[in-house]
């Protein structure tokens, strides 16, 4: 089973990387960009028997730092 795990900064947590990207887009002349937030995409291939609880556990114990990040799991 293939998974795509999106790890994003929680709302309200400052994202210096997103800000830099935003500024660079402005520098290239792109207008109308209101905000940019950068995150991570982690693609995994796991055994079909892997249950939701185990996937949730992997996200909370390692893939995301829940102090600053949210995660969302998508089954491909």
């Amino acid at each position: 089973m293939k998974l795509r795990i999106f790890v994003t900064l929680k709302p309200g947590v400052l994202d210096p990387q997103g800000k830099a990207i935003h500024k660079a887009l402005g520098g290239l002349g792109f207008e109308g960009v209101n905000d940019v937030r950068a995150g991570k995409l982690i693609e995994m291939d796991v055994a079909d028997a892997t249950d939701d609880a185990a996937i949730d556990d992997m996200c909370k114990k390692l893939l995301a730092n829940t102090v600053i990040e949210n995660f969302r799991v998508e089954r491909v």
Binding site: V13, L14, P16, Q17, A20, N65, V67, I68
Partner: peptide
């Protein structure tokens, strides 16, 4: 310890 250490504000 509580909290997290993120990328420096000025990058």
């Amino acid at each position: 310890l509580p909290g997290a250490l993120m990328r420096n504000e000025g990058l």
